[in-house]
Design a protein around this nucleic acid. Structure first.
Lengths: 367, 367
DNA sequence: AACGAGCACTTGTCACTACAACTTTTTCGT
DNA sequence: ACGAAAAAGTTGTAGTGACAAGTGCTCGTT
């Protein structure tokens, strides 16, 4: 089969549309004009146009002409991430979304805020979003701004620009509003509450009772949900609920850690994420505590170095590629039908048991 | 435009395919035969076949002929619900899914287990599922069996029949496994943890501290998640977590209720669902407690009579139509691409504040 | 100046023809 | 009797021609 006339014509027209040759308000050349220009019959032209119509690039009106649709004109997708290099969560997501956009005939615009200071990243994010709206992207995959004082306000400000231009948005990782509130956008990520329950449930099954949760002062909604999951798991076994404590501090704040350990004597820390868990391990060792013999640790995300550090980190795996795939598909669906009800899509997050969570209590006592 | 020749031919062929006129292994009549039979040109026949091909009913092989696809042959959807009449949750879902299946050219097979005894409903469900598999349905929307001792095992048994036949399944309402575990199927429902947080958060904002959670001894995973949400919300304001108590009993178990009230003196009950809340209200009144003056109540689901009973019930609204719509769309997606990763889709569930949750504490004390 | 008829142009539908690419069946030569 | 070639059938591609249905503009009449 290979290259047929109508197929080459389809591709040629796609390329012309992508290069903004045709304004959205004006009609593209008529079927007879196209048949003359490309030296094919009108039948062939119609077959090519049918294909484009089916893929949502154009729409035709009898008597008036054929027009490029909004989606067709702006076959670009924006991806907003606050600093690819600052987390191991994003590189695979960027890779996967790049692949998917290319496969679907879209162009990817990457807005990667790279400033070290979170406030500057917030400002950068807003300027990216403005650019995307000006470029007329068909949709945006958005990772919320975190680690600043009024994160929700900053995210609202950025997304209101896209709302004004009626550009669909899918949020990845987790919503920027604190549970149980919702932002009203689609969200794709893992079930952080369930992840927290898995982490705590594992420790409890080992016989651990005094489980504390470490999180940084300005933490994201996902970390809050993980904390909720830990509490929910512990309270499901009655009395255990009373042994929960928060350790809300930077993981390398040695003084705060020392005071916390002395006062509450935790048996295990569940940390907001793997990065914090590794830092906390270093802090604990500085204070003379060994992991997992004296204090057990569990993290979240399953970053690359989680199985390289000593001891290997027990953590909850974050399926980045699948999150990217699902969020992109969802964005395409929403571009096709903006009236879809906003929903949260969560993917399974499996606990990966390694060394840092330790052995069962009874066995340890025997040694 | 109206009825064109190719459109009537498309519909005629669809009807013929639906009536099992053509075996999947044999080719349907050739284009020239169809053009003679329907007295139209081959151009028109091809246009009709193109449409059917695009909708996934048929596939053609050059030189051999045109064949009905698996999906085309089995354009039936199964809907399994354990007793439409026993809950206000299901009638709107059945209505909506009936409408959507019709609109999409599918036939709906309804498996409605109607026995009063839950164990009998479980057996009925399995026989429905067998019938569906024998009929060769393209997919099943499944509401898990509840209220029996080993519900998870029963659900697994029913769904394994569909797995063996490689029939896609979407579960509505909530998974049949206890959090944080997942069954591995798609799930469409509300975020029950967030709903529980909303309910408790509302009571806390009124100044209530002693919030208890009522649930029946054999409750579903969704009720467990709601309970987790209540606990999570209460523990986020520190000391409050210690005032939580479970009241795990039938809502019309007066003796148990009396003992619970005397021992713990709750200020409010969050109930597993609206039905239980209304029953609990009656029990409370029998014991001389008024709602909301002595005890506040919050339910879940926002059933029809929630705003008819006295006092009107504060509850969390369950968006049944949207759940039906989203689950059906998801099933179609999964039929089209069975390799999609299984995910949980949750929709927003808004708190509806009415009378049963009472006034703010301070104002009440003034009166 | 306002209005309407007509004209030029658009897309949508339909028919017929021709051939290419491929598969299955039949026929014919060995 | 067997195998290869031919024939007959299938879908896929491409062209031509015709008319229907709808839009927008022009020109001429009132």
């Amino acid at each position: 089969m290979g290259e047929t006339k109508h197929r080459t014509l389809t591709d040629a027209l796609k390329a012309e549309i992508l290069s903004n040759k045709y304004a959205a308000s004006r009609a593209i050349p008529s079927e007879t004009q196209l048949s003359r220009k490309f030296r094919v019959s009108r039948t062939t032209v119609r077959k090519a146009l049918d294909a484009l119509h089916h893929e949502g690039w154009i729409r035709s009106v009898r008597g008036r002409g054929t027009f490029v649709t909004r989606q067709g004109a702006a076959r670009k997708i924006g991806l907003v991430v606050p600093g690819v290099s600052y987390s191991e969560f994003f590189p695979p997501i960027v890779d996967e979304i790049s692949r998917l956009t290319r496969d679907s005939g879209y162009t990817l615009l990457l807005g990667n805020a790279v400033d070290r200071r979170p406030e500057a990243r917030a400002r950068q994010t807003i300027s990216f979003v403005r650019d995307f709206a000006a470029e007329g992207v068909a949709g945006v995959v958005y990772q919320p701004i975190e680690m600043i004082a009024d994160a929700e306000k900053a995210n609202r400000a950025a997304l209101s620009v896209l709302d004004a231009a009626e550009i669909p948005v899918v949020i990845i990782d987790s919503d920027f509003t604190k549970s149980p509130h919702r932002s009203g956008y689609d969200v794709v990520g893992i079930d952080n509450v369930a992840a927290g329950m898995s982490a705590a449930g594992h420790l409890m099954s080992l016989g651990v009772t005094k489980i504390h949760f470490q999180s940084r002062p300005l933490c994201s909604a996902s970390v809050n949900d993980r904390r909720s999951g830990v509490i929910a798991a512990m309270s499901s076994s009655g009395a255990l609920a009373r042994t929960f404590r928060d350790f809300k501090a930077e993981p390398d704040d040695i003084a705060a850690l020392k005071a916390h350990l002395k006062r509450w004597r935790p048996e295990a820390f569940v940390c907001g994420n793997d990065t914090a868990a590794v830092k906390l391990k270093i802090s604990l060792e500085k204070l003379g505590f060994r992991v997992p013999d004296d204090i057990r640790l569990v993290g979240f995300d399953d970053v690359k170095y989680a199985k390289i550090v000593t001891p290997q980190l027990t953590t909850v795996h974050q399926p980045c590629e699948k999150i990217a795939e699902v969020s992109f598909r969802r964005l395409l669906s929403r571009i096709a039908d903006p009236s879809l009800p906003p929903c949260t899509i969560t993917l399974p997050a499996d606990l990966v048991v390694r060394v840092s969570s330790g052995q069962p209590m009874s066995r340890r006592k025997k040694l």
